[in-house]
């Protein structure tokens, strides 16, 4: 059962990443490679807040939310808005942004993971349903499970969400319906940025503040999103949990070295059977 809790916790972190990807994809049809770096920045905010400046958690989160939003806006402004349409150049530029963020963090904090004290609940593991889990892990688990569901409801029930869906389906048609596509674009970067960095402090006790965290999360979050079907928040949750479980159980029963291979294998199998992911929709091609 401890393995199950571990899988769920890791899966919850991936779910946050995947939801961050999805928010941007739904509203602006771009893939932001630098997204998980904001979670990484959030973990460093937690490290600074808890270990250096000793400020209350809420202050750290507040600052992270604002900073994350601002950085998201900056990414959109520098690496997305100026691009020629339809060339997928955003992958190159957001990879560039991602590398710059990681490089700056390495310069400031070095290469080693820094331990961050838990948000609350202390360092004593508790026993839940026969498995052991830390309070911090339980917190992130709840957030990771709830976030995709909330995001899904917001996307399918609110006007902003529906406008985003309309934009992702046909940008021109959305403009003609009076949707401010530009605002949705930068808005989604800001929201996703704030969300990822704001949740970073919750992730920090689990992952530590580590400069390479973004590079790890980007690939796992991506796999989670593709398995679930891009643009689907519910799918992201299922995909993220699937990745978490595959990782945890492969590590436990086969070997740590096979963990990533197994995840890649699952990705291949899902793509072979359902190229558009579990919750993705297949559109007929139009000329």
């Amino acid at each position: 059962m401890t393995t199950v809790w571990g899988a769920l916790t890791v899966g919850a972190v991936y779910a946050i990443v995947a939801v961050g990807f999805n928010i941007v994809i739904i509203s602006s049809a771009t893939f932001n490679f630098a997204q998980p770096q904001l979670i990484m920045l959030g973990t460093f905010a937690a490290y600074l807040g808890a270990a250096q400046f000793h400020v209350p958690l809420l202050v750290t989160i507040g600052i992270s939310l604002v900073l994350g939003g601002v950085i998201g806006l900056l990414i959109e402004r520098t690496a997305i808005r100026l691009l020629p349409p339809g060339a997928h150049a955003e992958l190159v530029t957001t990879v560039g942004v991602s590398v710059i963020i990681a490089g700056l963090v390495v310069l400031a904090f070095g290469n080693n993971p820094l331990s961050v004290p838990p948000v609350f609940g202390g360092e004593r593991a508790m026993t839940l349903l026969g498995g052991r889990i830390l309070p911090a892990e339980l917190t992130i688990l709840c957030i990771g499970l709830a976030l995709p569901l909330v995001a899904d409801i917001l996307t399918t029930r609110t006007l902003v969400g529906l406008s985003s869906l309309a934009t992702s389906e046909d940008k021109t048609a959305a403009v003609l319906r009076g949707i401010n596509v530009g605002r949705l674009g930068w808005g989604s970067y800001a929201v996703a940025g704030a969300l990822c960095m704001g949740l970073g402090p919750f992730v920090a006790p689990e992952t530590y503040a580590y400069s390479a965290l973004g590079d790890i999360l980007v690939l796992k979050g991506f796999v989670a999103m593709v398995i679930g079907g891009q643009g689907s928040h519910r799918g992201a949750l299922i995909g993220a949990l699937a990745v978490g479980f595959v990782e945890a159980f492969t590590a436990r029963y086969i070997g740590v070295n096979y963990q990533n291979v197994a995840v890649f294998g699952v990705l291949l199998i899902v793509l072979m059977i359902r190229p558009h992911g579990l919750f993705g929709e297949r559109l007929e091609r139009a000329v």
């Binding site: 990879v95 560039g96 942004v97």
Partner: peptide, 20 residues
């Protein structure tokens, strides 16, 4: 060496945006 990542990143952003 510690600045090399920053240089690559800058190349990617600037190159991707301006130098098609």
């Amino acid at each position: 060496q510690q600045y090399s990542l920053l240089v690559y990143g800058a190349f990617l952003v600037v190159g991707g945006v301006f130098l098609s």
